[in-house]
Simulated assay, not measured.
Amino acid sequence: MYQRILVATDGSDLSKKAVQSALSLAALTGATLVALKVVPRYPRSYMEGALPVDAQNVKQIEAQWTANAQTTVDAIKADASAQGVTAKAVVAKSDLVAEAVIAAAKKHKCDLIVMASHGRKGIKRLLLGSETQHVLTHSHIPVLVLR
């Protein structure tokens, strides 16, 4: 059925549920799991209201974010291994989360993307956006959305 499943995580509790569902599906189908966490770049615009930070501190902050992301996907890989599922841990750096998810799915030749959705509506959706919605509307790979 599925050969390679990409599961995107942001580390939230809802996302952890999606990871568990993706692990179960991978175990059932014998698929390889690709665990992905997208790390944004540190905002460098004064218009965003951020305090000015020197370049060295920006590098340290981004390195810490990347290390935390690596820890997250490594834990998923370990959980997968414990369940007998082959997994790969991937960290991508991008401010365009949805585009990074789609690109990673293509790069790793995945045939399913698994993501969580917070189900925001109205003004919250407008203000916060929806990465899952963007993946749904732009991906040519099937997407399984969990709530």
Rank of each mutant, 00 (worst) to 15 (best):
Y2R: 12
Y2L: 13
Y2P: 13
Q3L: 12
A8Q: 01
G11V: 06
D13V: 10
S15K: 06
K17M: 09
A18R: 03
L23S: 13
L23I: 13
S24D: 12
L25P: 06
L28P: 08
L28W: 03
A31C: 11
L33I: 08
V34K: 05
L36D: 02
K37P: 08
K37V: 12
V38S: 01
V39W: 08
P40D: 07
S45C: 10
M47P: 06
G49Y: 00
L51H: 11
P52S: 11
D54V: 09
D54N: 12
A55Q: 12
K59A: 10
I61K: 04
A63P: 13
T66I: 13
A67Q: 15
Q70C: 13
T71R: 07
T72M: 15
D74F: 12
D74Y: 09
D74E: 15
A75V: 13
I76M: 08
A78E: 14
A80Y: 04
S81P: 10
S81I: 09
G84I: 09
A87L: 05
A87C: 09
K88N: 15
V90N: 01
K93S: 06
K93E: 04
D95R: 03
L96V: 03
V97N: 02
V97K: 03
V97P: 06
A100I: 00
I102F: 02
I102N: 01
A103Q: 05
A103V: 06
A103R: 01
A104S: 04
A105S: 06
K106D: 12
H108C: 11
H108Q: 12
L112K: 02
I113S: 03
V114S: 00
M115C: 07
H118E: 13
K121W: 10
K124G: 01
K124R: 02
L126F: 15
L127R: 07
G129E: 08
G129A: 05
T132R: 05
Q133W: 12
V135L: 03
L136P: 07
S139I: 09
I141N: 05
P142Y: 07
P142R: 03
V143F: 00
L144K: 07
L144T: 10
V145H: 10
R147M: 01
